[in-house]
């Protein structure tokens, strides 16, 4: 078939479409939903007993804000990258917050080394972290992928990775409000590990969601 004939066929049965909301609005919509879901989960679990104490420590506050910021910016970047004409540089948007967050955790590990003694003594299991981040993060990521499914035909992978990261970071931030983990290495291991798992799962399993037939 010649391209001119294809154009004829595409235009012949043209139906009006509802214009999609702007990427910023889409990101805002999802962030609102995520804040509601994670907020309810935090309230259901009850805030951690030492929260007030920790919120007086600048490094703790900075760390928490960096995790929220990483989640918010990753969601914005995912929504932007889902549009074909937006620059790939949006990928870099959450990177500084992410570096700040994990850099602070790494620094915390060193501080704990001096405070609590050898690493081996600080490491334990915290399946609850993994469970919460996955149980909360998978549906949130799925909603974001569905919202950004127009990325499928053009730029699926960065959107899947950033969408997974956004969910994981916000769940981790929520988790920090009610779950007590003292040693930074535990946070790094269990939060970071769960986030990595969620991002990988999103990249591997999210494809069918963004590759669905467009509405």
């Amino acid at each position: 078939m010649r391209s001119e004939e294809l154009i004829g066929e595409l235009t012949a049965g043209l139906r009006p479409v509802r214009r999609m909301a702007s990427p910023a609005r889409q990101a805002g919509l999802w962030l609102g939903l995520a804040a509601l879901a994670v907020g309810l989960a935090v309230l259901a679990n009850g805030l951690r007993h030492d929260l007030q104490e920790r919120m007086l420590m600048p490094q703790e506050v900075g760390q928490w804000l960096a995790s929220v910021l990483a989640g918010v910016l990753a969601a914005v970047a995912a929504a932007m990258l889902a549009r074909p004409d937006r620059s790939w540089r949006w990928v870099l948007l959450p990177v500084p917050a992410l570096i700040g967050w994990f850099g602070s955790l790494g620094w915390g590990c060193l501080a704990d080394l001096a405070r609590l003694g050898p690493m081996a003594g600080q490491i334990g299991t915290s399946w609850g972290c993994l469970r919460f981040i996955l149980a909360m993060g998978v549906p949130l990521a799925a909603v974001l992928f569905w919202l950004l499914r127009h990325a499928g035909p053009v730029r699926p992978m960065p959107v899947l990775l950033l969408g997974g990261l956004a969910s994981a970071a916000l769940c981790s931030a929520g988790l920090s409000l009610f779950h007590h983990l003292d040693a930074a290495v535990m946070v790094l291991l269990w939060h970071g590990g769960a986030m990595l798992l969620l991002v990988l799962a999103g990249a591997l399993l999210g494809r069918p969601l963004v590759m669905r037939r467009q509405a």
């Binding site: 078939m1 391209s3 294809l6 154009i7 595409l10 479409v17 509802r18 214009r19 999609m20 702007s22 889902a82 549009r83 074909p84 004409d85 127009h150 035909p153 053009v154 467009q214 509405a215």
Partner: peptide, 23 residues
């Protein structure tokens, strides 16, 4: 022709305030 089909599929995601050529 693949591009024409994708443009058709994604036409609802185009933002009229932005230039269409880069899209």
């Amino acid at each position: 022709q693949d591009a024409l089909l994708t443009i058709h599929t994604l036409r609802h995601s185009y933002e009229p305030a932005r230039p269409i050529r880069p899209w």
